[in-house]
Design a protein around this nucleic acid. Structure first.
Lengths: 147, 147
DNA sequence: TTATTAAACAGGAATCATTCTTATTTAGTA
DNA sequence: TACTAAATAAGAATGATTCCTGTTTAATAA
């Protein structure tokens, strides 16, 4: 529940320098998502923040989370902003995911195929497969960016 | 478009040994998803298969894709069967994802923080972050499994 | 080959997450 | 304290996915 002073200060500074208004709602949403070590979905953030700000809307939660992502203060899990995708490539391979358009490309790398899983993970579960996920800008989106 | 004989044989054998009926629809859906190197969503598979089997339903495509995943013939991208999740952990870390329940846990590993990205990837785009994604069974689901 | 039956199917309705629209409120500034 | 562009709340709309129900079919055995 407790949040380091610095994190909150970075958040406020980041908004100010981008000319984004610092609202009560944004403050509470950021505090909520930053204080949680699980990976909450929007509905879960909404439920919790609502205890403190009963009139908040789900739409505001979504808008704020995307804004935080835009500002580089949080990230999303899974292919960005996109729907479920299926993969029939059963050979060992890895993924490059564009953080803008969500495009996912396979690539191959022997070194990545034989990663040594750390002890620590055994406490969580049994690993069946290890994949490297590279996130960045694909060439098409990089071209857009330079405008 | 062409699909190695062996892949199709494995598919048919896998269904037979599980007592799952080999239908025309399942055959076409598997052939479609197995022959594509992109990562199609259900709607895209549906559109393509419909050219050959005009009466097929979207529901059948979904059911069949999940069945193929259950049988280990395909995988899904992103957190399993689940919605978009947000992550405020900005420190370098990695993920363990349970393939059954979709639960995602952070873990830390210095060796994984400094992976050498292969040349090949430069042709795709610019990498901003490298994360290892371990997939497997979490302890809770493993316990369920042993029944 | 034909009959039987449980499984699978098609089609449409229902659900659920996410986004959009619009009228109202508010943070930042003068 | 007043002004204004930006942000909000509420509910409608959209879009993906799943459920429901009556019909069809693959697998099996006579």
């Amino acid at each position: 529940m407790s949040l380091p002073e610095t994190e909150l200060a970075v958040f406020m500074e980041r908004l100010r320098e981008s000319g984004i208004k610092l609202t009560h709602q944004r403050m509470e949403i950021f505090k909520e998502v930053a204080s949680r070590m699980d990976h909450p979905d929007a509905a879960s953030v909404y439920e919790r923040v609502r205890e403190r700000v009963p009139t908040i809307s789900l739409d505001t939660v979504y808008r704020t989370l995307w804004m935080l992502k835009e500002a580089g203060l949080i990230t999303t899990l899974g292919p960005a902003h996109d729907r479920l995708r299926f993969d029939a490539n059963t050979a060992p391979h890895h993924h490059f995911v564009c953080t803008i358009c969500g495009k996912t490309e396979d690539f191959y790398c022997d070194a990545f195929n034989s990663l040594n899983v750390p002890q620590e993970v055994n406490a969580i579960g049994v690993v069946e497969r290890a994949q490297v996920e590279l996130r960045g800008l694909c060439n098409a989106c990089a071209k857009e960016e330079t405008k």
